[in-house]
Amino acid sequence: MNQVFIILMNGITYGGLLFMCASGLTLVFGLMQVVNMSHGIFYLVGAYVGLTVQQRTGSWLLGILTGGIVTALVAFLLKISLFERVLGDSQRETLLTLGINLIISDVILAIFGGTPRNVVAPERIRTSVDLGISRYPLIRILILIIAVAEGIALFLLIRKTRMGQYIRAGVDNKDMTAALGVNIKLVFTFVFLLGGFLAGSSGVLGGTYLSFTQGFDATILTYSLVVVIIGGIGSLGGAALGALMVGLIDSITKATIPNLSMISIFGALMVVLAFRPNGLLGKGAKR
């Protein structure tokens, strides 16, 4: 019983982390039709910046914020200097963003070396709480709470604000939105900044309980892409659903048949696509 509870909780909390990372990716993907292969490295950039800030200042919260902000700036600079030149050409987009991945990855290796690292949470968070059935690490519960709060904030942004209307209209039809006088390029830049912030801050949060090293970006990118595709490109609700699904499958298979963990995730992806080619909540599916 304890075991089952912990496996399920691990799946749900990992889902929370995946959602934080994938929510930015799905918005960028949906709005700009850019397959941003640099998204995984954004997670790592955030993690290492957060680690450095946390080590220098001792503040975990400051680490999370700085990790998010610096990553957002990196994303912003990459967008205006490089991505804009290849927008609309998916082959170049993929090669460029993959290339950036490799470069940043090696820079990280040069600066931080290849040993796995962890961001250290404050003493009072490094504990576990009694959830009735079993004790469970507080940090993972916190991450889940932050993921849910972030989901609500994003939902309100998308549903209730003018910027959210621009984003939704842009995901539906970019040209039509522009032809109504909306500066869609500015909307893209905002979404890219936001995506960078979300990926970077999730890197610090995730790095607090999952150790990270150069190369971990590929894992995070793969999982995030699966989450986005299962959920439906551009759909936040879909990303939440997909993240929960991938998190649970990952946790359950790793506890039972570890060798089949990756296969099960891609198996789930295939099953979803077989019945819903646009993902669970993607365009063309009923909302």
Partner: peptide, 14 residues
Amino acid sequence: IFPSLTVDEHLRFA
């Protein structure tokens, strides 16, 4: 027409 926007949003957002 934008599938993700309500009728009212169509007439206000732009």
